[in-house]
Each structure stands twice: as structure tokens, then as C-alpha cells.
Design a protein around this nucleic acid. Sequence first.
DNA 1: CCTAAGGCTTAGG
DNA 2: CCCTAAGCCTTAG
Length: 262
Amino acid sequence: MSTVESYDPEPSDRRDPLIAGLGALATGAPAGLLDRVAARWVRVDAAIGDVYVAMTDQGVAYLRAEQDEDEFAASFRSRFARPLLPGGSPPPALVRALRTGRAEGLHLDLRGLRPFEAAVLRAAATIPRGEIRPYAWIAERIGRPKAVRAVGTALGRNPVPLLIPCHRVTRSDGLIGQYVFGMPAKERLLRMEHVNLDEVGTLAAKNVYFVGSDTTGVVCYPSCRDARRITPAHWHGFRTLGQAERAGYRPCRHCRPGGAAP
DNA sequence: CCTAAGGCTTAGG
DNA sequence: CCCTAAGCCTTAG
């Protein structure tokens, strides 16, 4: 910190770096220091209703749909050791992200996450709007194929839901799965993003979890944008990825069923 | 530091 | 089809 470096200690301070450091803190704080320490909260109208959002100087750090600012502050403090101050009006980029569901380019402050959690969220962030992937897909992608349940736990702790679209992660058996804001909200969000949940359900009822085209020999998750273009005459459903592969299909490079590496 | 319990799951019986 | 327990990261104790 420039304050500490530029501080000219009194002779008596010279031997003790701690005293010198404390002294530096006592001299004038530079403008902006407060915002490097404190977070600011704002309220934004999101697709699921009003949410509270905390931002640091690095970006958006926390988003929750609490009842009021006190409740939000309490949940923020139970997780972050940093003061929370009122932040005025929300940045346009944030408002846009929460209204459109497109968070590209928005800065997030994800410091403090465990490496596993960070990996899970990074994978979740790659799921395009309008598509869904299973929890097991994330587990595969991050190289922990059996940590499926831990993936759910990590997503449940997503500090910035909506911005990192954990609602696009659903169960392998075709059910929606749990969600921080509740299952109904998850379903509403997905329908809003034009995920055809009715089709997903219909297929699941028939034990179809993968679909392929016999012209391209490519197999996809049903919600994959490429799967939605398969001509009915060439459409084939599969229960497992293995069955599709045995039939000569290879995983789609876009939705990467099974979590295949790039 | 260690153990236990529990969570936005899933495969297998 | 329902039920169980494996499996694994976190956190509470």
C-alpha cells in the first residue's frame, strides 16, 4: 500500500515495523481506501424479483434474495469479514445482467472461494443461456467424476447466483434439482430462457437423456442448441452416452455430453 | 487437528 | 419404482 511505503516514521518507530505500520494507518487514508476494504450493497430488480447485491472494488461478490437489507447484511457478514455500506444506485452493467440473464463482461469478485468451488463455478459459467447440464457433467469437467454431490453443495453456495448460472445445472434423471432461490424459481428462470423443460421431461419419461442425428453422427444433451435442429427423420434417442457411442456417435463439441475434454 | 454429519446427486439394487 | 448408500467437499464441534 502506498500509504505505508510513503510514510516517514518517527525515529522512535524506526525499529518496529508494526508500530510503523499502525502509524501509517493513522496518517491520512488515501481516497478510495474505504472501498478497497468495504463492500457496497445495492438492490436490483432481477428476473426472480428484487435481489440484494454486494460489490467490492473488484466486482460483484455476493447476491441474495433476502427480505430486507438487514437480513442481507447479516448473511453477508456471516460469510465475508468486511464491512458493508450502502452503495447508491446499481451500475448499469449489473442491472442489464440481471434483467437479461447475460452476465458476460461483468466483473465478479470471487476471491475467497475454495479451489474446488471456483472450479465448479467456472464450469457452470460456461453453460449457455437456454441450455442445461447435469451436476455429473460439471463433476466430469472439473476432473472429479465422483464428486457429484459435492458439486451440488458448491453450487448451493454460489455467491453470485443468476450471474453465474447455477440454475442451468439440473439432475441427470431429468428432474430440475434444488436451487438457492427454490425449485419453482429455477424452473421459471429456465422457461424464461426458453429451455424446453416439457420436452426434457417427456424424453426422460421415455428414458432418453441423449439425442443424436444419424446424418452427423453427433450425440448431444437434448437442450443443446445443435440437438434442437435435428430433423425428426434422423433423430435418435439414447439412455446413456455409452449406448450412443457404441452406435457410432461421438459427443457434440458444443454441449460435450459426458463432460468430454475439449 | 480430527471426526462426524450433511448437502442444489446418482447409480444400483 | 422406491430406497440406499457411495462418494466427496465443507463446516461444525
